[in-house]
């Protein structure tokens, strides 16, 4: 009996060690909800998926560029990342002085984020998936109506330099996911799909006008304002942009 017990302990030990290599994920149970913007039909149905508990960190990303040199700052192709790509790093494989290893990676383009997730056998979340997971607070899967939930997000918008805080320093939400609000904004796979309803990408401009004038045209509650900010930002991004407050995390389909 004793040897078997030992063996089991060993195997468990090995297993946990291996599991640590991949960042932790938790299941998000699907459902139907109405996003602020989105498809023309109002309801959006999300199927079950797994989401990274934390945003990808500087440390994670550093490992990634070491393994895939094409994503080093000096080697990245201009078509995949603009001049801000990893611009705060001291060198190709060194963070800047002020940067924490466990702070979320920022200053990366959509192409970089997308490739990172693919290399882990994962993918970026869709806008709808991200918004679905992010409408939870500590206790509720959909807390968007609560004043505290929205006040928290708006309070964060006012805080400077939150991108250099460590992961896990904000609250754990209903799905056991951390940091969806409070540290950085996050890339989504189809960030460029929202806010188009008609014929041309010029629509985006129309919609950002809408955003600018939102107070006047009846954004009746804070809920709209907090989310307006996210949607408007996404609408203004291009895939090669790298911004200092824009990071990402990955998701995975459940049956893979």
């Amino acid at each position: 009996m004793k040897p078997i017990l030992r063996l089991t302990i060993c195997i468990l030990f090995v297993w946990t060690n291996l599991a640590n290599c991949q960042s932790k994920m938790v299941p998000i149970k699907g459902g139907t909800y109405i996003p602020l913007y989105g498809r023309d039909s109002l309801m959006v149905t999300i199927t079950d998926f797994q989401m990274d508990v934390y945003p990808v960190t500087n440390q994670d990303y550093l490992e990634f560029v070491k393994k895939y040199p094409k994503w080093k700052r000096s080697q990245v192709k201009k078509i995949f990342a603009d001049a801000n790509y990893l611009s705060t790093w001291t060198s190709d494989i060194e963070l800047g002085n002020q940067q924490e290893m466990l702070a979320p990676i920022t200053n990366i383009s959509w192409f970089a984020a997308n490739d990172y997730c693919e290399c882990q056998g994962k993918r970026l979340p869709t806008v709808d998936e991200w918004e679905y997971a992010a409408m939870a607070n500590k206790d509720l899967p959909d807390a968007r109506q609560l004043e505290t939930y929205n006040a928290y997000i708006l309070g964060w918008y006012e805080k400077p330099r939150t991108f250099n805080n460590e992961i896990g320093s904000t609250f754990k939400n209903y799905w056991n996911v951390y940091d969806l609000h409070g540290l950085v904004w996050e890339w989504t796979s189809d960030f460029n799909s929202v806010m188009i309803s008609g014929e041309s990408r010029k629509d985006v401009d129309n919609d950002s006008n809408l955003f600018c004038g939102s107070a006047a045209i009846g954004a009746t509650d804070l809920m709209n304002y907090a989310a307006f900010m996210r949607y408007a930002t996404r609408g203004s991004l291009k895939a090669k942009y790298a911004m200092k407050n824009l990071g990402f995390r990955c998701v995975k389909n459940i049956n893979q």
Binding site: R39, D40, S41, I79, W110, F111, N114, E118, R123, S189, D190, N192, S193, V194, I196, S197, G198, E199, S200, R201, D203, V204, K238, A239, K240
Partner: peptide, 25 residues
């Protein structure tokens, strides 16, 4: 994913509205 990547290079925006319908620039 290849199409999404390509669209991002071209700055073309699109979204599936229903199984056979997309809005796009």
């Amino acid at each position: 994913s290849g199409v999404r990547e390509f669209a991002n290079v071209l700055a073309v925006k699109y979204k599936q509205i229903s199984p056979l319908d997309f809005s796009h620039s």
